[in-house]
Design a protein around this nucleic acid. Structure first.
Length: 484
RNA sequence: GCCCCCAUCGUCCAGCGGCCGAGGACGCCGCCCUUUCAAGGCGGUAACACGGGUUCGAAUCCCGUUGGGGGUGCCA
């Protein structure tokens, strides 16, 4: 009998044939960036080699899985531009395959029935915090049936080696691998069985997934070799993504849903670029790479070994780069959803595309995400217009010269030619008159007309705002200051 | 507890025995530019966890320690 851990046949597959990979998320929560990176690495790997990307939904846990999570995963993948060649397959629809495999393994003696409850184990090993299964039912020859789980009879000796493209060979002593459950006592197949049966059935050549799966891989290999006489897939275990406490990203604890970033106005190409660089970098050190360049340069063998922190600041940097590189027409299209209901802080009929377009170039170089766009142009569309209280208090009400500046600006703006250079020149003159730098003199005018202490360049903005509204707002500010 | 993985600036990466008195990027700080804010330019800050080996020579190889992480009894 061959050593079940024997891997000598490995390497015969997928060397010349096109690789087949699978991305296999479980629909038990929103899709987070760690899953997105795993999907991306699978995708990059297989695209250059002309292979196939299979999408498989691992929903064997009926308690925790939900179809709504599945649709979220699919739309997030689409948004990122990660397309699939097959699927999505659902493990919940493939149950028969797992049952057949389990039957075969029972017949060949690799699986045995077990009726030990958790309490039984505890009573046999009181106080033992975490022992593995003790093999109690191994030789009891129980008949499989309801109320009895199916366990895999693991070898007592020898070693199972995981050949990993990222980590090299990782060895596990078979003696340390307990007889693990493969089918629950209620008949449901467990993840480890379903995955192996599917990978086998789908002809998967490379299993590229997060490092958290590495410890269960020897079990999968044992199972695989018990089921079929074909080489196991090649494995690649990617370093996990961690939070600021260096713990694995968790759906419950950490707010890192791909959908959230989309809603905040991150571009998929920026997200992709950033994600690709989380755990890998091209040989030449470039950091901004197009999709084609990523496909061309990406190598699993170059993937880092240590966990990476998802740094939103850095993502933001990449997003800004991509945003600024967009042609204006494209920026306009991408920004559109953020300028309309339900996102925009103004009614749809208050929006004026031409006004936005006029300021778009100035907007473009000031935002890191599309979500920041509305705030910059809100002064054009907000109805009614209300200056920010804090800014008004500080830069208008709190400035003894503000009434003078505002009053003179109103007078000067009343009849001049309405172009930016003119407005600037007029206000510069007022600045001189009140003995101030232009930078400080423009502050009260900015707050009165644009509502905020900082934002787009003042004069260009006023040109688009128009003379009437500009004068109205200055009057309103003066009125608010009251007489004297 | 046991098994496994990992270990270079705060963060993400480069480094695969001499080119390293450690390089790039983000962040942070300063300066310049400037109608605010950005963007941009320039400069600065800051790391090989520790201890043993191996070697003429170690961030790079080996061992150990420490630290971090992951997995672990019918989740995936």
């Amino acid at each position: 009998m061959p050593d079940p851990g024997d891997q000598s046949r490995r390497g015969m597959n997928a060397v010349t044939a096109a690789p087949r990979v699978r991305f296999a998320p479980s629909p038990t929560g929103y899709f987070h960036v760690g899953g997105a990176r795993t999907a991306l690495y699978n995708w990059l790997f297989v695209r250059r080699l002309g292979g196939s990307f299979v999408l498989r939904i691992e929903d064997t846990d009926r308690e925790r899985s939900d179809e709504s999570w599945t649709s979220g995963i699919l739309s997030a993948l689409e948004w990122l531009g990660i397309d699939w060649d097959e699927g999505p397959y659902r493990q919940s629809e493939r149950r028969e395959l797992y049952e057949q495999a389990a039957e075969r393994l029972v017949r060949s003696g690799r699986l045995y029935a077990c009726d030990c409850s958790r309490a039984d184990l505890e009573s046999r090993h009181p106080g033992n915090p975490t022992p593995g299964y003790d093999g109690h039912c191994r030789d009891r020859a129980l008949t499989p049936g309801p109320g009895r789980a199916l366990r895999f009879r693991t070898p007592d000796a020898g070693t199972t080696v995981v050949h990993d493209l990222v980590r090299g060979d990782v060895e596990f002593a078979n003696a340390a691998i307990e007889d693990f459950v493969v089918v629950k006592s209620n008949g449901d197949p467990l993840f480890v069985l379903a995955v192996v049966v599917d990978d086998l059935d789908m002809g998967i050549s490379h299993v590229i997934r997060a490092e958290e799966h590495l410890p269960t891989t020897p079990k999968a290999i044992l199972l695989w070799n018990a089921l079929a006489d074909v080489p196991t897939p090649t494995f690649a275990h990617l370093p996990v993504l961690v939070n600021d406490k260096r713990q694995k990203l968790s759906k419950r604890r950490d707010r890192v849903a791909v959908e959230d970033y989309r809603a905040l106005g991150y571009l998929p190409e920026a997200m992709r670029n950033y994600l690709a660089l989380l755990g890998w970098s091209p040989a030449d050190g470039r950091e901004v790479l197009s999709l084609d360049e990523l496909v061309e340069e990406f190598r699993l063998e170059q993937v880092n070994h240590s966990p990476a922190f998802f740094d939103e600041k850095r993502l933001q940097h990449f997003n800004g780069l991509y945003l600024r590189a967009l042609p204006l027409s494209e920026l306009r299209e991408r920004a559109a959803p953020f300028l309309a209901s339900p996102v925009a802080p103004w009614p749809d009929d208050a929006f004026d595309q031409a006004a936005f377009d006029a300021l778009a170039p100035l907007v473009q170089e000031r935002v890191a995400t599309l979500g920041e766009v509305p705030a910059l142009v809100e002064f054009l569309f907000a109805t009614p217009f209300e200056p920010d209280d804090e800014a008004f208090a500080k830069l208008v009400a709190g400035d003894a010269l503000a009434p003078v500046v505002l009053g003179q600006a109103r007078d000067a703006f009343r009849s001049c030619e309405w172009v930016a250079a003119n407005l600037k020149e007029l206000l510069a003159g007022i600045a001189v008159a009140v003995d101030r730098k232009l930078a400080k003199a423009q502050a009260p005018v900015r707050v009165a007309t644009m509502g905020r202490a900082a934002g787009l360049p003042l004069f260009e903005s006023l040109v688009v705002l128009g003379r009437d509204r500009t004068l109205e707002r200055i009057e309103a500010a003066l009125a608010r200051l009251g007489p004297g």
